[in-house]
């Protein structure tokens, strides 16, 4: 396939993915808006008003970037894991496997599909947050870059999960038992300064710490970890996830017999 044919194949996958999650928007877009609204009300307004300041900001201001990032992470991940596993389950992935579309185009198509859903939900959640607090963007460029990098990383993670999954149970195990704890322990609701040294050290193994703090820096201008180090770690995790995803596609493991 030449470059323009590859581009058309890529756009076909992305269009199909966007159409898919828009078609089932009550399952894909609405839950995040509702869940995040509840977080804003309960943690931000009710409990947050009693907590006072954190990191020099009101608790509501402090948690908003983390909650937006939480929506991006869960949506970019769950879009790819459910869509790709679904195509494995109903064998429609064979439509792509028998075509001349290169493996990297297949991967990028699904990942960008997940990224667009992450962005879509991020915009919705950001708009909802404006009902609860005023949002000042400290560095718009950092916000955009970190959103794109994060949604790419977790879309790739969703792809890996989908390749290994054998049942619909398998695609909910990782989000429930791995992703959610990592998000909650990633500094969405608290500053790393509150943790004892040991647990602060352990937290540095959690990629969500870098994601949440880099995004918080973009929005509020404060971060618990060095910004460049955050970008480096996210880039490293993304590169590793991309390389592993390509290995899975090229080897055909769990996709071809």
């Amino acid at each position: 396939m030449n470059a323009s044919e590859q581009c058309r194949a890529f756009m076909t996958i992305v269009r199909k993915e966007i159409k898919r999650y828009l078609r089932i928007w009550p399952q894909t877009l609405l839950p995040s808006a509702i869940t995040m609204s509840l977080y804003f009300v309960i943690f931000g307004s009710l409990i947050g008003s009693r907590i006072g300041e954190m990191g020099g900001f009101s608790y509501m201001e402090f948690v908003v970037p983390g909650l937006i990032m939480m929506a991006i992470v869960t949506n970019s991940y769950s879009n790819v894991v459910s869509s790709f596993f679904g195509s494995k389950f109903n064998h429609s992935v064979e439509e792509l496997l028998v075509s001349p579309t290169p493996n990297y185009v297949i991967l990028l198509g699904y990942v960008v599909g997940g990224v667009t859903r992450g962005l879509f939900v991020a915009i919705v959640v950001t708009l909802v947050s404006l009902f609860f607090t005023r949002l000042h963007i400290h560095n718009f460029f950092i916000v955009i870059v970190i959103v794109l990098m994060t949604s790419t990383l977790f879309a790739l993670a969703g792809f890996i999960n989908a390749v290994f999954a054998n049942s619909f149970d398998d695609i909910s195990i990782i989000p429930t038992f791995v992703l959610t704890p990592l998000i909650y322990l990633g500094g969405v609701f608290y500053s790393m300064d509150l943790l004892p040294d040991f647990w602060a050290g352990v937290s540095k193994l959690n990629p969500l710490v870098y994601v949440v703090n880099a995004f918080r820096y973009g929005v509020l201008g404060v971060s618990d970890v060095n910004l460049l180090f955050s970008f480096g770690m996210i880039g490293l995790f993304t590169a590793a996830a991309f390389a592993f995803s390509m290995h899975l596609l090229n080897s055909g493991k769990r996709l071809r017999q």
């Binding site: 396939m1 076909t12 439509e95 579309t101």
Partner: peptide, 10 residues
């Protein structure tokens, strides 16, 4: 979509 996977214009 299958046409797209073969690089065909929409």
């Amino acid at each position: 979509n299958q046409g797209g996977y073969y690089g065909m214009p929409v």
